[in-house]
């Protein structure tokens, strides 16, 4: 795999605030790479460092083998889809999409042709003469996508592009983005705080917390083999078990994580107190305390459902108890 984007020891500090703190990252060519984390975790700053809107305090960024230091955004072979789309309000949709070609000096007819093709690709062929203000959120998002892609970037950077859309549209756009990335074959770097989005779309995910990358891996790695309590908790809301809980079970002072769906009601096991029950449709979520540790369990449809206040016995398979070396 050739490296598309490589960050080595990159930090971005604002005074005492370490927005990005000593990050190493290697994104392969053609990869769909997600940067996942809560707000303020440094993922967007990292994207902006790659795009060139921010400068690293220390460290080196390489884009397709070229050191990005001192190269302004307009000379980098990457394009961005902004969170607020940043469509130019004074230009119509076609001129928005053709903007990159215009400043590159492409003649009017040719750039309008390319813009119309790009709009066709995102199913907005008939909207060229509209003003961005006349479009819905989903349509603006597609225009922003077409505007970036028409420049044939080597990598596309997407900053929470689906954040402003409603759930249904978001799911549809996830599919479309994934399909688009496959057909174009270019690198996508995708920032999101939605773990479901990151896991379902990305080839690899980097989980950010407090300016650092806490884990990089495939969605399966991240989901089933979290390396730290933070990842376990943030990605898919696993039950994080403290060492004092895990030690008596396996004899080692380490953190454990247990997925809610791995916990089941049993005749023999750990006594647990039911604190609340919520019906989710396809399953039922039951909050329990085992000893002094709060956990949630996810009971499939059709299972017997306890009531709040009940004392029950719960258990899990040893294989599902994932151990984490990192604190």
């Amino acid at each position: 795999m050739t490296s598309a984007i490589r960050l080595s020891g990159v930090s971005r500090h604002y005074g005492a605030v370490k927005a990005v703190d000593n990050i190493d990252l290697d994104i392969a060519e053609g990869e769909f790479f997600a940067m996942l984390g809560p707000s303020g975790s440094g993922k967007t700053t990292t994207l902006r460092l790659i795009a060139g809107f921010e400068r690293p305090t220390v460290g080196e960024i390489q884009i397709y083998g070229e050191v990005a230091q001192g190269i302004p955004p307009y000379k980098r072979p990457v394009n961005t889809v902004f969170q607020d789309y940043a469509l130019f309000p004074h230009l119509n949709v076609r001129d928005n999409v053709a903007y990159g070609l215009m400043v590159a000096g492409v003649a009017k007819y040719a750039r309008h042709k390319s813009a119309d093709d790009a709009l066709e690709m995102v199913a907005l062929g008939a909207y060229g003469n509209r003003s961005p203000s006349e479009l819905s959120g989903g349509q603006r998002q597609r225009v922003a996508l077409a505007r970036a892609l028409v420049n044939k970037p080597k990598a596309l950077l997407l900053d929470e592009p689906l954040g402003a859309l409603d759930l249904k549209l978001r799911e549809q756009m996830q599919e479309e983005l994934k399909a688009l990335q496959r057909s174009l074959g270019i690198t996508f770097v995708f920032v999101t705080h939605d773990q479901g989005e990151a896991l379902s779309m990305a080839d690899r995910v980097a989980v950010f917390n407090e300016g650092r990358i806490v884990q990089i891996g495939t969605p399966e790695d991240i989901y089933y083999r979290p390396e730290s309590p933070f990842v376990a908790d943030f990605v898919g809301s696993s039950n994080v078990l403290p060492p004092r809980f895990v030690a008596p079970l396996i004899g080692r002072q380490v953190y454990g994580s247990l997925r809610p769906e791995a916990v089941y009601l049993a005749d023999q096991g750990h006594p647990a107190q039911v604190t609340s029950v919520s019906f989710l449709g396809t399953a039922t979520r039951v909050s329990i305390t085992v000893g002094d540790v709060a956990m949630t369990m996810l009971l499939p449809k059709g299972a017997a459902i306890p009531k709040a206040g009940d004392t029950v016995q719960v258990n899990w398979d040893d294989a599902d108890l994932h151990l984490m070396a990192a604190p």
């Binding site: 795009a51 060139g52 809107f53 302004p72 955004p73 307009y74 000379k75 990457v78 394009n79 961005t80 902004f82 940043a86 469509l87 130019f88 903007y99 990159g100 400043v103 590159a104 505007r147 970036a148 420049n151």
Partner: peptide, 8 residues
């Protein structure tokens, strides 16, 4: 930023 990103 969008303008600069698009090559201007």
């Amino acid at each position: 930023e969008a303008s600069m990103d698009l090559g201007a």
